[in-house]
């Protein structure tokens, strides 16, 4: 799952070391356009629905937070 998310992230912007980056949102690495693309890719790829409640910076700052989010939403189905 992590690899797949990494692949999606690399499609959006390949120049970032997602494994070490800890402030994807807070440091403005991903802008709002990137984030919206990311959410729609994650939704369709994992067949989940990231709602407004989960669409908060805490869930998008690191690759591991993102993975945790996708895992939680996939398991809750």
């Amino acid at each position: 799952m992590k690899e797949k998310i990494l692949e999606i992230l690399n499609d959006i912007n390949p120049d970032i070391d997602y494994e070490t980056e800890t402030a994807l949102v807070d440091d403005d690495v991903l802008d709002s356009f990137d984030l919206v693309s990311l959410v729609s890719e994650l939704n369709s790829c994992f067949d989940i629905n990231i709602t407004v409640v989960d669409f908060v910076p805490e869930n998008f700052n690191t690759l591991s937070a993102l993975t945790a989010l996708v895992e939680r939403l996939s398991n809750g189905k």
Binding site: D26, L35, V56
Partner: peptide, 10 residues
């Protein structure tokens, strides 16, 4: 803050 542009909930 700039972030509200990305996060509608905020």
């Amino acid at each position: 803050p700039q972030q509200v542009l990305s996060f509608p909930m905020q």
